[in-house]
């Protein structure tokens, strides 16, 4: 893989130039928070952020979108697809892995054209990070990333080490070759090694994933699920903020004229009571415990069995954002019997 070096002071010009030819998305500071948003001149880019509330998925699977409009006698019309190249800067390794998980869902087998269009028009520039006490990507094997990006920036203080991951990424580097250096010297290599080992020492949160999918299968009937669910508000904040939760509802809305309308989809959560409700009034998961179990089962068992990797990328958003303070790592660890069940909640 080609690797180049971008001096720190050249990052802003580099992004500024990219913004002239692309829609640039960056981690942006807004008050005390950092959100992924479109770059505007003078906006504050967060280069050392921990995690955003909403993950990158909002730019590929928007919270709400119209799939098509219809009118009697005129058939169906899809909304004009968004056009133009986007560059999404600042994704941490976990979020890049998460996009790869979403690709399994939306691009393998049945292709979701809405997702594909947005994915195809977006270049990914990753950015290294340091963990806080909620990150457990090292347990999920998602702390480093070797593909799924066009460029990946590792912050080494004075410089960024830039890995080139695709020909499009290489084009970006070549277009702005005056800002980068192709010389990766011994000192930079040493810095990189130090960064990797320092970072891996910083993790606090861990999750033992060995045999987890099997343990979950065996614990299907456990009363533990209902116990944890007593504390769960079923607010859906964990699902919305999860970079790999992709469930949506589809609904039709007719207009006042009764001959036209639209079909839309919007995010939903398997924690909501109507999620497994079917025609005739039967609910496959009537209890909150059954729904909480579903969320963890799909994340750590079903997806794993289908794709060979867990859908969880260890970003820590679910725990960081749960108003009830439910820590899914602790829930799963508890289920393994490694810690006392009373330690949860």
């Amino acid at each position: 893989m080609k690797t180049v070096v971008l001096p720190r002071e050249n990052l802003e010009p580099f992004l500024g130039r990219i913004a002239r030819g692309h829609d640039l998305i960056v981690p942006k500071k807004t008050g005390n928070d950092v959100v992924f948003d479109y770059y505007q001149e003078g906006c504050q880019i967060a280069l050392e952020y921990r995690r955003t509330l909403l993950p990158p998925k909002k730019f590929f699977l928007p919270p709400e979108e119209v799939l098509f409009r219809y009118k009697k006698g005129q058939g169906f019309t899809e909304p004009e697809p968004e056009v133009g190249r986007r560059v999404f800067f600042g994704l941490h390794p976990c979020d890049i892995h998460a996009l790869k998980r979403l690709d399994y869902v939306f691009l393998e087998g049945y292709v979701d054209t809405y997702y594909r269009r947005r994915r195809e028009r977006t270049l990914i520039i990753g950015l290294s990070c340091l963990p806080d006490d909620k990150c457990f990507c090292h347990s999920m094997g998602t702390d480093l990333v070797s593909d799924g990006f066009d460029l990946f920036f590792t912050d080494l203080g004075e410089v960024y080490l830039v890995e080139v991951g695709s020909t499009s990424g290489n084009d970006l580097v070549l277009t702005h070759r005056d800002l980068v250096s192709e010389v990766v010297d011994e000192a930079i290599l040493k810095e990189y090694k130090t960064f990797i080992s320092t970072r891996s020492d910083l993790f606090v949160q861990t999750l033992d994933t060995s045999g987890l999918s099997k343990i979950l299968t065996l614990e299907w009937e456990s009363p533990f699920w209902e116990k944890v669910a007593q504390d769960c508000l079923a607010c859906g904040r964990c699902s919305m903020s999860c970079p790999t939760c992709y469930c949506f509802s589809i609904y039709d809305q007719v207009n006042l004229d009764s001959i036209s309308g639209e079909r839309s989809r919007s995010w939903t959560s398997c924690l909501y009571k109507d999620y497994a409700l079917v025609a005739g009034g039967h609910n496959f998961r009537p209890s909150r415990g059954a729904r909480l179990r579903q969320r963890l089962m799909h994340k750590h068992k079903d997806f794993f069995e289908q794709q060979g990797v867990s859908a969880c990328v260890g970003c820590g958003r679910c725990q960081a954002n749960c108003p009830a303070g439910i820590d899914f790592c602790q829930v799963l660890t508890s289920l393994r019997g490694d810690i006392s069940e009373s330690a949860v909640g």
Binding site: L53, C235, M240, S241, W267, S269, K273
Partner: peptide
């Protein structure tokens, strides 16, 4: 079917 938190989080 969803609580206020859905739109709030979004």
């Amino acid at each position: 079917p969803y609580p206020v938190c859905l739109e709030c989080t979004i």
